[in-house]
Design a protein around this nucleic acid. Structure first.
Lengths: 161, 161
DNA sequence: CCTAGTGGTTGCGTTCTGCAATCACTATAG
DNA sequence: CTATAGTGATTGCAGAACGCAACCACTAGG
C-alpha cells in the first residue's frame, strides 16, 4: 500500500480507517479477546470470518498486533505491540465522542464513563496493564485496584442494577 | 443506516470510519477549507468530487457539519457543529499516533508536534477558536497569541527552514 | 451573449466488502 | 482406527463502495 500523503492523520486513517479494524482492537483491548474464534463469535457487530482474517493480517503487517507462532489448526494468540497499545487514546476519543454525540447506550457505556471521569491518568494505568499482559512487562506497583478491575466492576454494577 | 450495536465506539466508527470523512474534517478544521471547490482541490490526497459530495452530505446528516443555505451555483459554506468541533480530540489522537508510529513527515507534522507539546489546554483553546469562527461564539479573552496563530507560525517556520 | 466559477451529478469500470459454505489441520474420545 | 469437535482460515459470489472523467445547472461579471 502506497501512502496517499505524508500527513500523519492520513497515515493513521490508512491503517485504522475502516469499519472493522478499530472494533477488533476494541475487543482485543477491552474484551481481552486474543484468539480468532473468540473474536469471531464474541463480536457484538457480527464480523465475518474472512473480514476478521483479513484485518488480523493487516494489523499484524501494520505492526499493531503480533501473531503467536502457531501452525494450521492450532490456536494462534494475538498480542498488542506497543504501537497497538498506543491506539488506546484513539479508541477512547472515539468512544467518548460516540457516547456524547450518538448516545450509545450499549456495552461500553459505563466503562467509557469511568474513563472519562478518571481522566488521562486512568488511561495511562490501563496502558500499563496492557503492557503487562501483552508485552510481558513487569507490573508496576499501584495502590488500589487495577484499572481493568475497576472497569469490570463498573460494568458489572450497571448490569446488576 | 441501522446501528450494528449500541457500543459508542461502534457509533463513532459508523460515522467516521472510512477513508475520507476524517480527512475532510481535518481540512475543514486545520485548513479552514469550508467550500466544495476548496476542499476538492486543496486535498493533499486528491479526493474525487463525487466522494466529496457524498461525504459532505453524510457529515451534514450526522450532525457534524451544517451547510449554509445556498442555491445551485452559489457558494455553499460548510460549518462545524459543536459535535463536529468535538471530533478534534479524535483527529488529534489519530495524528499523534500516525506521527509516532507511521513516521508521517508531511504537512501537519509541526502542528501536531506543537499540540503534543502544549497538551490538552491547547486543544481546548483550539476548540474555542473553532466555536468562534464556525458557531459565531463570542471570543474568549486569551493572553498571548491565538492557537491557530501559533499553529501557522510553527508551520511557516518549518517551511522556511 | 460570453466566460469563468459555483456546487455538484452521471456513467462506467475497478476494487472492496459481506455472507455462506468449505477447507486443512489438530486434539480428543470411543 | 474412526468419529467428532474445534482451530484458523480460504473460496465463490453478489452487492456496495470507490475512483476517474466528463458533464450539468446555475450565478456573477463584463
Amino acid at each position: 500500500m502506497e501512502p496517499r500523503s505524508g500527513c500523519p492523520i492520513n497515515a493513521a486513517v490508512e491503517v485504522l480507517g475502516d469499519r472493522w479494524s478499530l472494533l477488533v482492537l476494541r475487543d482485543v483491548i477491552f474484551g481481552d479477546r486474543r484468539y480468532f474464534r473468540v473474536l469471531l463469535t464474541g463480536s457484538m457487530e457480527g464480523i465475518a470470518s474472512n473480514i476478521l482474517a483479513d484485518r488480523l493480517v493487516r494489523l499484524v503487517e501494520a505492526g499493531i498486533l503480533t501473531r503467536g507462532t502457531a501452525a494450521r489448526g492450532q490456536r494462534a494468540r494475538y498480542s498488542l505491540t506497543e504501537a497497538g497499545i498506543q491506539t488506546l487514546p484513539i479508541i477512547y476519543a472515539l468512544g467518548d465522542w460516540g457516547l456524547h454525540w450518538r448516545s450509545g447506550s450499549g456495552e461500553l457505556r459505563s466503562r467509557q464513563q469511568l474513563m472519562r471521569d478518571e481522566g488521562p491518568a486512568f488511561l495511562a494505568q490501563l496502558m500499563d496493564e496492557l503492557r503487562v499482559s501483552h508485552l510481558g512487562a513487569t507490573p508496576k506497583p499501584h495502590d488500589g485496584p487495577g484499572a481493568f478491575e475497576r472497569l469490570n466492576a463498573a460494568y458489572a454494577a450497571e448490569r446488576g442494577s
